[in-house]
Computed example of a mutant assay.
Amino acid sequence: MVLQSRDINVLQYIVEDYILNGLPVPSKKIAEFPEMQVSSATIRNVVSELEMNGYVTRPHSSAGSIPARKAYRLYVEALGSVNEMMLSSKLRRKVRHQLIQSVSNDINTWGSTAVNLLSNLVGSLAIVTAPQSFQLYVNQIHVIKIQNNTLLLIVVFPGAVIKQKILSFPNHIDQSLIDESITYLNHIFVNKSYHQIKDVDLPLGIVKKKLFKSVLFVLEEQQQKIQFDYRLDGLRNLLIQPEFVNRNGLLHSLVHDIEQGELLQLIMSLMPQVGTVRVVIGDEHSNNKMRPFSLIIGCYGISNNMIGSIAVVDSVRMQYLKGIASVKLMVNIMTDITRMVA
């Protein structure tokens, strides 16, 4: 279904009303919105089409609409380049002043100040990691043929840390292809971090592709062993969300992931480039336990040097506009502070 402007307007209204009130949105209510300027019958037809194409769900034909994950994704994409300017200038100045003041008073408290400010700004769970040079780089890659169809992959990291992996293939592998693959892998991976490599297009060919995926897996595995200093605030905000009332199992699972470091590792694996923000919505998560939640993740600091992450965790019905603007505000301020103290 190619959505027309009218369809998008109706869907946007449904999403915004549901975010605000947490209740299914009746077609009659949509039709009464002055900017729609269409009949109730037209709205019902549009809603039926949206339901058929997976943008909304309804318990029965006469019930109100509840936005599906596709609707939230379309809504977020339609927001375009949201920035901190949608927040009041007074609020922006206040947040910047408090963060810079915390650095002046005690540099060790700015993480706590930042996460508290962000949690209060968005009314959600907030997580901030301290800036650090945590990017792990590959020094060298070797590939040795140990049988006609079996290769030994050797990945060398700084500090003479060596990781090995045996890879089997269905057919005989020529030495010329191995040599070509070694050159390719070293060109792609050496002196690059996991975050610089993870979105690179896969190479062609079974051998190169499998070697590429294996090196990336080893690099990610080593990256996840790095310890991060982080601050967290606002878990109490999730306790009052209607989605989680009488569903303690969801929050218990989230708390468990926090305590085990799994949530932090997830955030770090999804972290975008410095100065940018990424939104992950509901069932876009590969981890089933995270599908009741959405994440807004930002990266601040100095590229390839001192960087940290800023994240907001909430129900799928989070206030995306305010959340994205708030995370971008914190990214910009904390990038400035990192440059000041680096």
Rank of each mutant, 00 (worst) to 15 (best):
K94P: 01
L250T: 11
I30T: 15
S309C: 14
Q4W: 08
M306N: 11
L239W: 00
N116A: 11
L3A: 08
H285E: 10
S61K: 14
Q273G: 15
Y300T: 10
G123H: 06
S181D: 13
K225R: 09
I258E: 03
V56D: 13
N305H: 12
I66C: 03
E221T: 10
S294T: 02
S89Y: 04
L153M: 02
D179E: 09
L11A: 01
S214E: 13
E180K: 15
G249L: 13
I226L: 12
A71L: 03
S214T: 06
L151D: 08
Q319M: 08
T335F: 03
G275F: 12
G261M: 06
F212W: 09
N116D: 10
D201C: 04
E284V: 04
M268A: 08
T113Y: 07
V156M: 15
G159S: 13
M36L: 10
N248Q: 10
I337N: 05
R291I: 09
D201R: 09
A325I: 07
S5E: 15
S40W: 00
I281F: 11
P242T: 10
S27Y: 04
P59A: 15
R96T: 15
G298Q: 13
N237H: 14
I127A: 05
T57E: 03
Q224G: 05
R96G: 06
R44Y: 06
K29F: 00
I302F: 10
K163P: 02
T183R: 14
K145M: 02
K225P: 00
V200E: 11
I141Q: 07
A342R: 07
K70I: 02
S124T: 15
I333M: 07
S119V: 03
V274Q: 09
D174Y: 04
I146M: 02
F228G: 00
D229Q: 14
I307R: 14
I258R: 05
R247Q: 12
L263T: 15
L136H: 02
